[in-house]
Amino acid sequence: MSTDHLTPVLTGRTLVRANPVSKLFAAAVITLALMSSIDWVSAVVVLVCEVALMPLLGISVWGLFRRIWPLLIAALIGAYGTALLAAKTGEVLLELGPVLFTEGSVAAGVAVGLRALALALPGIFIVLTTDPTDLADALAQKLRLPHRFVLGALAALRLVGLLMEQWESLGLARHARGVGSDRSVSARIRNLLGQSFGLIVQAIRRATRLATAMEARGFGGGTRTWARESTFSPLDAVVAGVGLLVAGGAVTAAVLACTWNFILS
């Protein structure tokens, strides 16, 4: 288990300066456009734009691949699943007993796989270029989300790494008590359930103490000021505009190409 991808190494210099709310907006409209339809044209348009914008991440192709390879596999599995289960139209491409792929079902699978990739990348853009504290500042100050929940969530997110370490150390501690190296599946599942329970006990205890520490520092009152102001700059208009442009372009292209396939239709 690697925790490399948990440390927010902020890479893209330009996008780091943009307000998280504008990045969220751009990602949200692109996601919305992609979600609305399952078709290969809108997915390809978004994917091409995303790949074109990737230099903004300031991360090497290899570095990016190391972070997102499970995503590529997931997209492949999604494509395969749909190709297997979609309506079997067009010519038969492959038939192995009950397994049947046709032109129509494979095309559907390809569209699903491309869409999954295109849907995932905006999230990667945000994770790689956004400091969680800046995000919380922006959500509370600009979007006016309730600050107690935003800050509670921020404080909890800080514990991801700590809880991961605790998971490892629980595993060692339990091994020292005589559990953990069973071969049978049911014993292993029982052990994992026990370890999970142990982690949740520790997490709740820690959270209760953290709540006390936060309350002792005046947290939870009605009004609050912010030591760091979350601001918008012209860059944010550009980010939001690019998001709108990509989303609009994808929808327009799909409609023009007559591939638009609204999910609720």
Binding site: M1, R148, F149, G152, L159, W167, A203, I204, G220
Partner: peptide, 26 residues
């Protein structure tokens, strides 16, 4: 919601996310 409700709910959600991550490795 009290402060302790918010903080424990938040940490609980994070812990469940971590547990799920650990399981998914298996």
């Amino acid at each position: 919601w009290r402060v302790v409700d918010i903080v424990v709910a938040s940490v609980l959600a994070v812990a469940v996310g971590v547990v799920f991550f650990a399981w998914s490795a298996g």
